[in-house]
Design a protein around this nucleic acid. Structure first.
Length: 243
DNA sequence: CCAGACGTTGTT
DNA sequence: GTCTGG
DNA sequence: CCAGACGTTGTT
DNA sequence: GTCTGG
């Protein structure tokens, strides 16, 4: 993406990650068009309450924006992603790397591909379940960091250098969301986790599950695109095969 | 010392 | 609120 | 992404 | 050769 993902499972199906239910007033709507730029409500598992699914706002609000978080997000669309390689040094994020790690629960996300013709196409990226096609997808625990203002959680998605697969998809910026291996989620959200382990997870914690990706309609990158139904991820003919 | 940033990668 | 850059 | 640095510390 | 700064 790292600005657009999908949440299509009903919340209770996410409960494998939060076995005591959910926190937060807002409900999370299933959507195939979860757009970071509109600061949507997304499900996370936070280090301060690992037994719950917490509703968070996509867009981290640092301490200097706490007087008016909504204004901060409206004016500043630059805390949607946090670079894992840099987040200990950046002013906005560094207080929250130790205090506020979480996983964001998506079941897919979109990455742009640029062809040699300079034409672009978005690709929907996901891990199929046993059935093997895009209609049944695994939940992806994506590393995030969050701040809390007045009990509301504000979260930024952690990105890292693309692996071989994602370098083929997101072939210009070569970045990818840090999708953690299921068995490392606990390590990531352990509150007293050490800096060196956190850095190791950023570098080497990416899931070993096999991703799939297929081209989808370019409509999803239009500013006024609001449809969020399942047909959004229907495959279209790629301009060229990218693998 | 003060001003300005504070962030990362989408665009149809 | 705090750091960076000029 | 490309250009430019890449380093440390004497004295008056 | 690799990192940093613009």
């Amino acid at each position: 993406m790292c600005y657009k993902g999908s949440i299509s499972k009903e919340e209770r199906k996410l409960m494998g990650y939060g076995n005591k239910g959910k926190k937060g007033i807002r409900t999370i709507q299933p959507s195939y068009n979860v757009n970071a730029f509109s600061n949507p409500a997304i499900p996370i598992v936070a280090q301060d309450s690992p037994d719950y699914i917490t509703t968070a706002t996509w867009g981290l609000v640092p301490f200097w924006g706490k007087r008016d978080p909504e204004k901060f997000l409206k004016d500043s669309k630059y805390t949607l992603n946090a670079r894992g390689e840099d987040f200990w040094e950046t002013k906005s994020y560094k207080p929250y790397v130790q205090e506020g790690r979480c996983v964001i629960l998506f079941d897919g996300f979109y990455e742009p591909h640029t062809f040699s013709s300079n034409k672009k196409q978005p690709f929907y990226c996901y891990v199929p379940n046993d059935a093997g096609d895009y209609n049944s997808r695994s939940i992806l625990p994506i590393a995030g960091i969050y701040s809390i203002m007045d009990d509301e959680y504000y979260v930024s998605l952690v990105t890292t250098e693309a692996n071989d697969f994602f370098a083929k998809v997101h072939n210009v910026k070569k970045r990818m969301p840090l999708v953690l291996d299921d068995k490392l989620v606990e390590e990531w959200i352990k509150p007293e986790q050490s800096k060196s382990v956190i850095d190791d997870l950023v570098r080497k914690g990416f899931t070993s599950k096999e991703f799939h990706a297929h081209a989808v309609s370019n409509d999803i990158y239009k500013r006024d695109f609001v449809r969020d139904g399942k047909d959004v991820i229907d495959p279209v003919q790629p301009i060229q095969n990218i693998f």
